[in-house]
């Protein structure tokens, strides 16, 4: 085990932990109003036809809040899964593997969702248009 590194008399790992804790809190505070907005959006979009959904995503506010929600949720859920894995998985190799898997999953999920949202916002032709298939 390597010796602890210190900066200004505080363990570097402790500063890192504090930043993660603050990130979790900030993300959760941002997600609380967003979750109410998601509920109201779900109410609007439940049962709506395709044209109505496309019209909804054409509005910049809806697109912006959708992208913000998926990004902040991924940051928050990624850190939450990290805490859960740290609490219940103790074999170092399994822990490293699961954390990498969790981070990769949320990265891919965010990229996929943003890709779809942007296409809906600009009103692209139905997929697989643009992929030459």
């Amino acid at each position: 085990m390597s010796a602890h590194r210190y900066r200004e008399g505080v363990k570097v790992s402790e500063r890192h932990g504090a930043v993660e804790w603050l990130t979790e809190r900030a993300a959760l505070v941002a997600l609380l109003p967003l979750s109410l907005w998601v509920a109201s959006s779900a109410f609007t979009l439940a049962g709506a036809d395709h044209a109505a959904v496309m019209g909804w995503f054409a509005r910049p506010l809806n697109t912006g809040l959708s992208v913000a929600t998926i990004m902040i949720l991924s940051v928050y859920a990624g850190l939450a899964w990290k805490v859960i894995i740290e609490d219940y998985i103790h074999r170092p190799s399994s822990k490293t593997f699961l954390m990498a898997l969790s981070n990769l999953t949320f990265l891919l999920l965010t990229a996929t969702a943003v890709f779809f949202i942007v296409r809906l916002h600009v009103g692209s032709a139905p997929l697989p248009a643009g992929f030459g298939i």
């Binding site: 959904v53 998926i70 999920l109 996929t112 779809f116 949202i117 809906l120 692209s124 139905p126």
Partner: peptide
Amino acid sequence: AVLVTAWLGAVAFGP
């Protein structure tokens, strides 16, 4: 979030 993303995909794949 995965299910909602799948729904976004369904909308992107057309009516």
